[in-house]
C-alpha cells in the first residue's frame, strides 16, 4: 500500500478531471442534510467527520432502477451505466458493500445479479475515516476499525490543506498526483463483540419481539437509511405500449411486505416484521453468506421516530441466549 501527499487544491483539480468519466458521489450539504450526493463541482464536497444521514448504497443499488424496457414486439435497449466514483465513504459504509457483494454476486449467494454486478465492477471507492464515534454508533462492537478500511480502492485523509491518499488497488494508481510519503500505520481491528451465535429456532418464538417492536410505527426509515438493507420489489410501468420494468426498494417494515397475491401475509404484525429485520441481518445472512449484515453505523437508531434500538435488541438476545 503506497501513500502519497498532496494538497486539497491539487486533489480537487485531479477530481475535476474525473468528472467526465465518473458520476462522483461525495458527502455534501448541498441539499440541507449531509448526504452522499452526485456532485458536479469538487467545491460542493463537505469535508467533515460527520456521517451522512443515509448510506451510499444508492450508488450501486438505486432506489428505482430500470432493468428492462420493451414493447409488444421488441426489447428496447437501455442506456449504458456510467461508472460511479464514491468519494469519502466511511469505513462502515465501505464494509456494507461486502454484504451486497455476498448477496448479489458471490457464489455463496444463489444468483449473480447482472445489474448490480455491472455497477459494482465499474465502481471506484475512495474512503475516509472517522475521528470520533457518534451517538448510536457501534462499529467497534461489530469489529470494524472506524479510522480505516482497506476494502476500497483508495483512502483519503485531510489534514488542514494537506491531503494524504493511500493507494490500495491498482485502479487507484495514477488518478491523483502527489509526492510519496511513509505508509499509514493500520490499527488492529477491534474484536467483534456484538453478534448472535444462537440458532434461528432458539430465538424465533422465545424472544419478546412484541415488547421490542411496541413503539414501531412501520415507517421504514431504518431500512431506507441502512447501508446493508437490500430487499426489493419489481414493478412494470406501461406508458403507451412501452413497458418499463423497474426494481424498487422494498422494506420489511411496510405492512404490504411479503403480501401474497392471494391476499394473505405470513407476517401480520409489526413485531413479526421487526423480527424479520433483526433476524435477516444477524441470523439469516450469517447462515447464508457468512456475514452479519450490520456495520454498526447507527443510522437506524438515530433516525427511528419510535426509538427502537437494534443494538440493544441484539445485546438483549445475547444475554437471553447465554452468550455474553
Amino acid at each position: 500500500m503506497k501513500r502519497i501527499k498532496t494538497t486539497k487544491e491539487a486533489f480537487n483539480k485531479d477530481l475535476a478531471a474525473l468528472l467526465d468519466k465518473f458520476d462522483v458521489f461525495a458527502p455534501s450539504t448541498k441539499q440541507g442534510k449531509l448526504d452522499y450526493l452526485n456532485i458536479t463541482d469538487p467545491e460542493d464536497i463537505t469535508w467533515t467527520d460527520d456521517l451522512p444521514y443515509k448510506s451510499p448504497k444508492e450508488t450501486v443499488f438505486p432506489r428505482v432502477e430500470e432493468i428492462m424496457r420493451f414493447t409488444k414486439d421488441d426489447v428496447v435497449p437501455t442506456a449504458n451505466v456510467k461508472p460511479v466514483l464514491l468519494l469519502g465513504a466511511k469505513p462502515c459504509d465501505i464494509e456494507s458493500f461486502d454484504v451486497f457483494d455476498g448477496v448479489f454476486t458471490s457464489e455463496k449467494g444463489l444468483y449473480i445479479d447482472p445489474f448490480y454486478k455491472e455497477r459494482r465492477d465499474k465502481m471506484l471507492i475512495i474512503g475516509s475515516g472517522c475521528a470520533a464515534k457518534k451517538p448510536g454508533c457501534f462499529c467497534d462492537e461489530r469489529g470494524y476499525d472506524m479510522t480505516f478500511s482497506d476494502k476500497c480502492d483508495a483512502f483519503v485523509a485531510l489534514d488542514g490543506d494537506d491531503m494524504y491518499i493511500d493507494l490500495i488497488t491498482d485502479r487507484a494508481e495514477g488518478l491523483f498526483s502527489g509526492s510519496d510519503c511513509p505508509p499509514r500505520e493500520v490499527n488492529k481491528a477491534p474484536e467483534t463483540t456484538l453478534k448472535i451465535d444462537a440458532h434461528e429456532n432458539d430465538i424465533f418464538t422465545t424472544m419478546p419481539w412484541e415488547d421490542w417492536a411496541m413503539s414501531c410505527i412501520g415507517c421504514g426509515t431504518c431500512t431506507y437509511v441502512c447501508p446493508t438493507c437490500h430487499c426489493f420489489d419489481i414493478r412494470d410501468a406501461d406508458d403507451k405500449g412501452e413497458v418499463t420494468r423497474c426494481r424498487l426498494w422494498d422494506s420489511c417494515m411496510y405492512s404490504n411486505f411479503t403480501l401474497h397475491a392471494g391476499g394473505t401475509n405470513p407476517r401480520t404484525t409489526q413485531a413479526a416484521r421487526y423480527r424479520q429485520r433483526v433476524m435477516h441481518k444477524y441470523v439469516y445472512l450469517r447462515d447464508n453468506i457468512g456475514i452479519t449484515a450490520c456495520t454498526g453505523c447507527g443510522r437506524c437508531i438515530r433516525l427511528c421516530p419510535g426509538g427502537i434500538n437494534i443494538h440493544d435488541t441484539v445485546k438483549d438476545i445475547m444475554g437471553r441466549t447465554g452468550k455474553k
Binding site: P135, G136, C304, G306
Partner: peptide, 14 residues
C-alpha cells in the same frame, strides 16, 4: 415518552 440516549431525544413508551 422515555429518555433515549442513543437517539438524543425522548422516544415513545407504553
Amino acid at each position: 415518552l422515555t429518555p433515549n440516549e442513543a437517539v438524543g431525544f425522548p422516544t415513545p413508551i407504553v
